[in-house]
């Protein structure tokens, strides 16, 4: 059985419609109208132990809502949700011992006390035996370079420093699953990289299952084998990243740097490809060929070009993951 099973999960928020003005306020006292927002709309997926899954989508897609339900702090409107044989919101007390949670926007540490004190408190709250606690802490401390931060109150930490501390806080009790809602929001490149490497390590070495939301697609590409894309509460794509590439018709291009000035019209005449291919002259020595991944493979094109002209250098441009995901978000298949 999968570690996390989600079946036809729904969350509907009811937003109270406020009428304007004094008259509206009076009407509101007696009669209330609601707007319904279906933040999560009938989604299903399952995640196995040890997976590292990226959960992405544009603003307001329903990512945080899903994470809140998965962590047991928000009750679904309908649907089935089982993690590690527990129903998160029903067996919250038991469940919280098995999961770690980081919400990038907030901290679970105590604002006014030094980080190490917060950790000690968590040790008592989760009832972690001292030797376990110490060995885990010293390991994470080294991995994330926490030593200089431990005696500083949380309110005095920078965002990136705080995030590293929060990450360690979520792992002290040795959870099976780690939920991360935008853990790298607002971090610089180095900060992001150190968290990325850390997550990779704990996923590989400790076998912790990780579900992560982010707007940084580079991160997803580097970290996650599997990607779930959601918008308007519905899952648009669930699978691996390479699969995502082949799933869409994408424009690729090859740029040839030639040795000699070339006759563009002549070359265009000679190079005849099937499918949707266009040639473009960038300057005296550079030729660009645009094609779509459905019709041709690059090798074929290169082979043909080399036959006609002398080539100095070749650059193949892949569509970026941003481009693909942007396409998914905007709902265009082609």
């Amino acid at each position: 059985m999968a570690l996390i099973e989600v079946e036809k999960l729904n969350k509907v928020y009811k937003n109270f419609k406020r009428k304007e003005g004094l008259k509206g306020a009076l009407v509101n006292m007696i009669y209330r109208e609601y707007d319904e927002i279906r933040a999560v709309d009938d989604i299903s997926f399952s995640i196995n132990s040890g997976e590292l899954v990226g959960y992405i989508g544009p603003n307001g897609a329903g990512k945080s809502t899903t994470i809140k339900m998965l962590t047991g702090i928000l009750i679904p409107t309908s649907g089935r949700l089982v993690v590690n044989n527990l129903i998160p919101y029903k067996q919250r007390y038991e469940y919280t011992k098995q999961i770690g949670v980081v919400f990038g926007q907030r901290t679970q540490l105590w604002w006014d006390i030094p980080v190490i004190e917060s950790f000690k408190l968590l040790r008592k709250i989760y009832q972690i035996p001292k030797d376990h606690y110490e060995s885990r802490l010293s390991k994470f401390k080294n991995l994330l370079d926490l030593k200089p931060l431990l005696n500083i109150p949380v309110r005095k930490l920078s965002l990136g420093q705080r995030m590293r501390c929060d990450l360690v806080a979520s792992l002290l009790h040795n959870p099976d699953v780690l939920f991360l809602d935008e853990p790298t929001i607002g971090l610089d490149i180095i900060g992001k990289l150190s968290i990325r490497q850390f997550l990779e390590k704990i996923n590989n070495e400790l076998g912790i299952t990780i579900i992560l939301t982010t707007h940084d697609l580079k991160e997803i590409e580097a970290l996650c084998k599997r990607l779930i894309t959601i918008d308007h509460g519905k899952i648009l794509y669930d699978g691996d990243i390479d699969g995502l590439r082949s799933c869409y018709t994408l424009n690729r291009s090859i740029t040839f740097q030639l040795i000699k000035n070339f006759d563009f019209d002549n070359l265009e005449q000679k190079l005849k490809f099937d499918g949707n291919v266009t040639l473009e002259r960038l300057d005296q020595l550079r030729l660009k060929i645009n094609f779509s991944n459905e019709s041709l493979n690059p090798a074929k094109i290169i082979e043909n070009v080399i036959k006609e002209v002398e080539v100095h250098d070749i650059a193949i441009e892949e569509p970026s993951i941003e481009e693909i995901v942007g396409r998914i978000y905007s709902g265009k298949k082609n």
Binding site: G72, I73, Y93, R106, I125
Partner: peptide, 13 residues
């Protein structure tokens, strides 16, 4: 503020 989430993710009554 929604900070109550930070209490609810911990094993406490």
């Amino acid at each position: 503020s929604g900070h109550v989430a930070m209490d609810l993710i911990k094993p406490i009554d």
